[in-house]
Simulated assay, not measured.
Amino acid sequence: MRAAYATAADDDQPLRALAVGEVPEPTPPDGWVTVEVRAASLNHHDLWSLRGVGLPGDRLPMVLGCDAAGVDPDGNEVVVYPVVADKADPRGYSLFSERHPGTLAERMAVPRENLIAKPAGLSFLDAACLPTAWLTAYHMLTTRGRVDEGTAVLVQGAGGGVATAAVALALALGKRVYATSRDPDKRAKIAELGAVAVEPGMRLPERVDVVIESVGAPTFDHSMKCAAPGARIVVCGATGGHLATVDLRRLFAMQLELLGSTMGTRAELVALLDLCVAKEIRPLIDSTYGFTAVTDAFAHLASGEVFGKVAVDLLH
């Protein structure tokens, strides 16, 4: 069967570690089933895997991809929850493409408990964009950030999958949303969504109750300064640098909560799917590639010129 997979680790030029070709059919263990993948989406996690982060050489070659929607052996349309319980991992779990072959293949083995019924109102492509970036944003806003207790949200570095998802979801939940981007074109797109688009570091007209932080060092001081008393600063990544300076005086004087966050639960993915249907929210898809052009999809993601998700249609 066709698949996109990592053959090596290349920190300088990760796309050189990417291969597209034939791989063996999946062999599901007890409690697992084979899913026919209809659509998938890319994440920066895939690029990190090609760099060798979290994917040591003894697990290569490894089929890439965390996100998928498809059809189970009974003909049901399903969304794949990407988190697999894993006692061997210090986190207690792993994602598809870390220890188990991922979603960028015509077929994949999945624990039956990881299958969620795809709502009829969502296409395979839409559904395939939700399980990682959008679930991460939903978990950050609702569970970690307790956004229901506040009225205003700041999203740093809007443009990428998690940040744009956070903007769309916070707006759907009725919050005032501010979002930063260095790119004026991306700021214009943010404004079209209904958020207030600002340049990084710009003073806001109010302090916010929740900050969604995935950039790290370049924006972290701004995140601290924009936080209202008792605000939650929720961090899911550090794409711009992980060694941020924290002003401890501001942290304790303003009684801020600094929270790490990663992924979300199966129940939260179900709730996210329900919210998307109820509020008629659809993921922001930057571009869609047929499987024959999956190498181009990776190159586009790596370029940084992306607003939303990069999707892959496995039927083309």
Results as ranks from 00 to 15, higher is better:
residue 94 S to G: 10
residue 49 S to N: 14
residue 73 P to K: 11
residue 36 E to K: 15
residue 47 L to G: 11
residue 92 G to V: 12
residue 54 G to K: 14
residue 35 V to D: 06
residue 34 T to L: 07
residue 16 R to V: 05
residue 63 V to E: 00
residue 78 V to L: 01
residue 82 P to Q: 02
residue 71 V to Q: 09
residue 13 Q to W: 02
residue 36 E to V: 10
residue 81 Y to H: 04
residue 40 A to Y: 10
residue 39 A to H: 04
residue 82 P to A: 12
residue 18 L to S: 11
residue 77 E to A: 14
residue 36 E to Y: 11
residue 87 K to I: 12
residue 92 G to E: 04
residue 45 H to F: 08
residue 59 R to N: 02
residue 96 F to G: 09
residue 60 L to I: 04
residue 70 G to D: 13
residue 68 A to L: 04
residue 83 V to W: 08
residue 34 T to K: 10
residue 82 P to W: 06
residue 74 D to Y: 12
residue 7 T to H: 09
residue 88 A to Y: 02
residue 50 L to K: 05
residue 16 R to P: 12
residue 87 K to T: 15
residue 89 D to Q: 15
residue 8 A to K: 11
residue 23 V to G: 06
residue 74 D to P: 02
residue 58 D to T: 15
residue 84 V to T: 03
residue 48 W to R: 14
residue 62 M to D: 08
residue 81 Y to F: 11
residue 71 V to P: 00
residue 25 E to P: 07
residue 89 D to A: 15
residue 61 P to H: 07
residue 64 L to H: 11
residue 56 P to R: 11
residue 70 G to H: 09
residue 32 W to Y: 09
residue 11 D to L: 06
residue 26 P to F: 09
residue 47 L to R: 09
residue 84 V to M: 09
residue 48 W to N: 14
residue 58 D to L: 08
residue 37 V to Y: 05
residue 40 A to K: 09
residue 61 P to G: 09
residue 41 S to M: 13
residue 50 L to G: 03
residue 55 L to N: 03
residue 86 D to G: 06
residue 36 E to N: 14
residue 65 G to D: 02
residue 96 F to S: 05
residue 10 D to M: 00
residue 79 V to N: 08
residue 90 P to S: 10
residue 41 S to D: 00
residue 82 P to N: 06
residue 34 T to S: 14
residue 77 E to Y: 01
residue 29 P to Q: 11
residue 86 D to T: 08
residue 50 L to N: 01
residue 38 R to T: 06
residue 24 P to F: 13
residue 47 L to V: 03
residue 25 E to T: 15
residue 36 E to D: 15
residue 30 D to L: 10
residue 67 D to F: 10
residue 88 A to W: 02
residue 26 P to R: 00
residue 41 S to G: 04
residue 14 P to R: 00
residue 92 G to Y: 05
residue 56 P to N: 01
residue 47 L to P: 00
residue 83 V to L: 03
residue 92 G to W: 05
residue 19 A to Y: 01
residue 48 W to C: 00
residue 36 E to I: 05
residue 61 P to R: 00
residue 54 G to T: 15
residue 66 C to R: 13
residue 85 A to M: 08
residue 20 V to C: 03
residue 85 A to S: 05
residue 78 V to S: 14
residue 53 V to R: 15
residue 34 T to I: 04
residue 21 G to K: 02
residue 39 A to E: 01
residue 40 A to Q: 02
